[in-house]
Structures are given as structure tokens and as C-alpha cells.
């Protein structure tokens, strides 16, 4: 099934510059409906208020971290199948394992490039 480029994508990061970079890279790839949140709790609220097709989240945020957001999403009956990609500077093996155990679909380490983002999106969503 083709990827719907009109899907709503939620990007979550406490650095506004990073939100801007991810948004611009997604736009280059054809995703135009991108919303932003600066921590897990704000993101969770948006996910419950509107239908999204993908979450791309940072890990290290306050008050709710990316891994907490991921656990909340997986524990929510309506959101549990949401594709979820972590983009973070947390590159330790234990972080990746914890994210995988929490149900992350893919994991990108910062700093990242556009090609990596596209590859991960294709892996999670399919070709577009």
C-alpha cells in the first residue's frame, strides 16, 4: 500500500531548531502536514486530539521524555499501533534496547542526515 504523504506527522523535540530541521526535511520528502510538540505530554495530548500517521520523537525532554511518550502510546488502545521513530543523541546500546523493548519502530541517532531519515521512513512506512 502506498504511503499517504498527506498523513499528519507529529514531531516532538524540545529544541525548536531541531523541529524546524526535521519539518523542512520532511517537507522535502513530500510530507506537508507536520505538527510540533516540545515534550511528551504535549505530544500525547495532540495524539489524542487528532489523527496522526507517524510520530518522530526526541528522547531527552521535560517533563515527559520520549521513552515515556512511547510507553504511553503503546499502552493506549487507540494509539498502540502508531508508527514511532525516535531521533535522539542518546546512542548507548542500553537506550536502543530500552526503546526497542518499549515498542519503537526505528531509531535515528543525532546528528543525522536526510538520507538516513528517508531510509528509516521507508523502513517504517513503506516506499514513497
Amino acid at each position: 500500500m502506498a504511503v499517504d504523504l498527506n498523513m499528519n506527522v507529529l514531531i516532538v523535540d524540545d529544541y525548536k531548531t531541531m523541529l524546524r530541521i526535521i519539518r523542512n526535511l520532511l517537507k522535502q520528502l513530500g510530507f506537508n502536514n507536520v505538527d510540533e510538540a516540545t515534550d511528551g505530554s504535549a505530544a500525547l495530548q495532540k495524539l489524542r486530539d487528532k489523527e496522526y500517521g507517524l510520530v518522530i520523537s526526541d528522547w531527552n525532554m521535560e517533563p515527559m521524555t520520549g521513552i515515556q511518550l512511547l510507553r504511553e502510546v503503546r499502552a493506549d488502545a487507540k494509539l498502540k499501533n502508531m508508527p514511532f521513530i525516535m531521533i535522539t543523541a542518546e546512542s548507548k546500546t542500553e537506550n536502543v534496547i530500552a526503546a526497542k523493548e518499549a515498542g519503537v519502530n526505528n531509531y535515528i541517532v543525532k546528528p543525522f542526515n536526510a538520507a538516513t531519515l528517508k531510509t528509516k521512513l521507508v523502513t517504517v512506512l513503506g516506499n514513497f
Binding site: 523535540d13 529544541y15 531548531t17 531541531m18 530541521i21 523542512n24 526535511l25 522535502q28 543523541a89 543525532k110 546528528p111 543525522f112 542526515n113 536526510a114
Partner: peptide
């Protein structure tokens, strides 16, 4: 795009 990628530095240094 290369400049966008390079701007990752702000998040990392921050």
C-alpha cells in the same frame, strides 16, 4: 539539505 543536516550541531552542542 546539507545546511539543514549541519544545523544538527545546535541540538548536540546544546
Amino acid at each position: 539539505t546539507q545546511v539543514y543536516e549541519a544545523c544538527n550541531f545546535q541540538d548536540i552542542t546544546g
